[in-house]
Design a protein around this nucleic acid. Structure first.
Lengths: 102, 102
DNA sequence: ACATTACTTAGCCATCTTGCTAAATAAAGC
DNA sequence: GCTTTATTTAGCAAGATGGCTAAGTAATGT
């Protein structure tokens, strides 16, 4: 996890909020979470009523925002949670909430 | 603040994430925050390089998601922060983060 | 009453998003 | 090497989003 400059952090914050704005993507993260933090693309796709390419694209969005990490194992692709960018969201929320001078 | 059933809470969570996905809307909230939590539409619009109707629409989005509350005072519209729905986001994030059985 | 101020609402247009199906890739099995 | 399995990538179409300008509304000032 490379150290990010301010602009990159803003980018990542925006990407994280956008990624989480879609119910299916939030659900994907929860599904992986409650299956231990890692799942294959096929297992994930199997839990949704969308066609596989649709889920695949959601996975790609989550991967490019850094919320998932992909790892290859033979012909399967294993997606693993990577929740660092959630810290950015929490930090942003704290900025909103702190009492004025905090 | 009315008690919400599960479906309504999901709706609100989704709306909150979507609202916060746009940088300008996040900036609007921060601007209001650092001006004490309430501002008129005009003062808010004046801080952005977008045309007034564009900002007005962002304000409406934030209002309908419950992140802002509008109050009228003469011919001005005062927008005030209302951060209850942030609690939903924080709660959702905790669901992702808790260690398995938490 | 009429003009001005402080906004919102309506409607257009370009771009982005998200579903789909069809085609490509890449590893494993025969 | 050819097929099957696991998955992505490409490309299309419908709908959502976010800029804009123009028009509407509602309170205040003259």
């Amino acid at each position: 996890m490379p150290r990010l400059d301010a602009a990159a952090r803003l980018e990542q914050l925006s990407a994280a909020f956008s990624a989480l704005a879609h119910p299916t993507r939030r659900q994907i993260l929860l599904v992986i979470r409650f299956r231990g933090g890692a799942m294959t693309a096929g297992d994930i796709a199997g839990r949704f009523h969308y066609k596989w390419p649709t889920v695949s694209r959601h996975l790609r969005v989550l991967e490019t925002t850094g919320l998932l990490v992909r790892e290859r194992s033979g012909r399967q692709h294993i997606y693993r949670l990577s929740l660092h960018s959630l810290a950015l969201i929490k930090e942003w929320i704290r900025w909103l909430e702190v009492p004025k001078k905090g």
